[in-house]
Design a protein around this nucleic acid. Structure first.
Lengths: 194, 194, 194, 194
DNA sequence: AATGAATGAGGCTTCATTCAT
DNA sequence: AATGAATGAAGCCTCATTCAT
């Protein structure tokens, strides 16, 4: 029983694996159960329904992303470096964890009817983090930090989305693209270095 | 007799409506048929299968977008204005036609197995359009136009995606956000105007 | 129009091709129409329904088989040779024309509800042919020719059926098997040659 | 609660009944479910898919036939009697269990795509049984037992097939025909008894 | 804590056929 | 002589979920 973790976490794990391998619409209670080695019914012991399971997964992803971003934005470095580092951390989270990213940011709320709205507020915090960094790095100049953070988020989100949807030029390595995105983010938001 | 217009276009229309109201995964042959007021079988008179139907919709969307972009990028105006106009046109297309945008740019190719690859090339042309405009507006400076166009596309795509997913600050009017995105796009890609 | 025969015969031809390529249950009015290059509706001009089409095909097959058997049983040769030749002709008809053989002898009458019973009588004539040959070759001895012919038919039919169902030993060439069947037929029905 | 017996065997039973009444191609999951009194979905609890259901039926038939043949070929009788008895047992199995015989020997492998090949090997064993008996009864004479067994099988199979397809002379009682087949089998394969 | 049995709804698709033109 | 439009029935199968045990 304790051998390979408790059932709840094994369910989440296999759901994630399935998500990664076959995409959201191919994830079903049945398939998860088969992958885990239990019955579909057992899943309902730990999760009210399929949405609740997905939400738990989103929760996990949020935690992970929050950790990555916190590390990258730690105030022990020069502001511009923190800006770059945080952008990079976000981009890399999306590219390294496509299954989390998909359910966290690519799923339409229409599919998440039963998702308690307050959970979404958590995503807002990432925005505030970006706003904070921008405030610091552009101290003095007059601008709307939340608005700029939103635009920045758009850029990063768009870059990840296109990459995950495999709609980017196939010839270009991901790392090159990511670097370029960060560079453009800088020239978009940071004052020309002296 | 049932109503007006030929069945084929009514099918496409209702498919679009459903797409808009309930999202891609809720669009089914049965539901379309019910919305149109015909039998599912009838749909197969006009479309080989579900994918073909979706692809016809994509085609329509591509046509529409191409028209919008062509108008906006017409060479009868000053380069910077064309840059702004084209960005705006893309953003507005996405926001005004969420159902088209979704199937055109948000669907994973995994769901589009039967989509002929040459159709995807058409999407690439939009990228080239942006690259052309960038080349013109930044003539002289050394940079990779396709790469910058890709980053620009990421920004625009990200902005539309977040808007469509209703993940933007609810307080802010869409037009404000759009304007800000275009402005940021300028400062990201255009040389500081003297 | 006259270029590639009239529609009726082209329909029959393509039905036969389909039957051969994909088996009975894959033959549909739609597929035939597509293969012919006309609409399913057009088929109904020449055939009342699907069964009628199949019956026409059966008719064709009966004609062909009758021809083959008539040639093989022509009274210009020695009785034993005619016996051998006629058996061989039947076996070869089945193996060379699996599509005809299938609908002529392997389809259950339950699927042929609308088949006029008098058509089946035609098949009986083949039986009589065998009976005639047996009568001749075993002139004098007392036996029931029709009964023996029926048993002979069973042997030949069984051999063809197993071959067509690919249930025979894969290692053995068809011609070897056929020869053996004829030889066994002889020892089953013909008096030991002096 | 619905009735008696566990659902799995009731499904198999009704499938058999349908097979008998309406033929293979009329056997559908829906019809089986309706006959049993459950939903089509329930069938999938016990069988992975339609083929698996049919294969289970084939399995049952194989078991039955194997039992019949084993009893008939038991080495407690005189060789010639065993020969006769085994032929008779095969013929009677086919005539008494038309629904089993149909799926076991009359279905084309093309319709049995998902049928594991090793299951077919089981059918081959019947052939070996006949070969063994022939070896014994014709000890001494030089002949190919497997080949002769195959021809014998053709005869028996053909006889059953024609009977099941109702293509035999309607006037003749089945038992007469069967007896004649066995007698002819003897004169085909056994040395003239002194 | 977990299962086995069952379901109703719905997924895409193909069938033979008809009817007005 | 031929078609285009349409249909109702049916094909296999998967879904999330529930309920009694």
């Amino acid at each position: 029983m304790t051998a390979n973790g408790d059932l709840r976490s094994r369910i989440l794990e296999q759901a994630r694996v399935l998500l990664l391998k076959e995409g959201y619409s191919a994830v079903s209670m049945r398939k998860i159960a088969k992958a885990v080695g239990c019955t579909p019914t057992s899943i309902y012991i730990y999760f009210d329904n399929k949405d609740a399971l997905i939400h738990a997964l989103i929760e996990e992803g949020m935690e992970l992303l929050a950790g990555d971003l916190a590390k990258a934005s730690a105030p022990d470095s020069e502001p511009r470096a923190r800006f770059r580092g945080t952008c990079l951390a976000f981009l890399e989270f999306g590219i390294q964890n496509p299954e989390y990213y998909q359910i966290m940011f690519l799923l339409h709320p229409e599919k998440m009817e039963r998702y308690p709205t307050d959970k979404y507020r958590r995503a807002r915090r990432n925005l505030e983090l970006f706003a904070d960094i921008l405030r610091e790095v552009r101290s003095g100049s007059s601008f709307d930090p939340m608005l700029s953070a939103t635009v920045l988020w758009s850029l990063l989100h768009g870059a990840i989305s296109l990459h995950l949807a495999q709609r980017l030029d196939v010839g270009m390595p991901a790392s090159t693209f990511i670097d370029q995105v960060v560079e453009h983010a800088e020239s978009m938001l940071l004052p020309e270095s002296p």
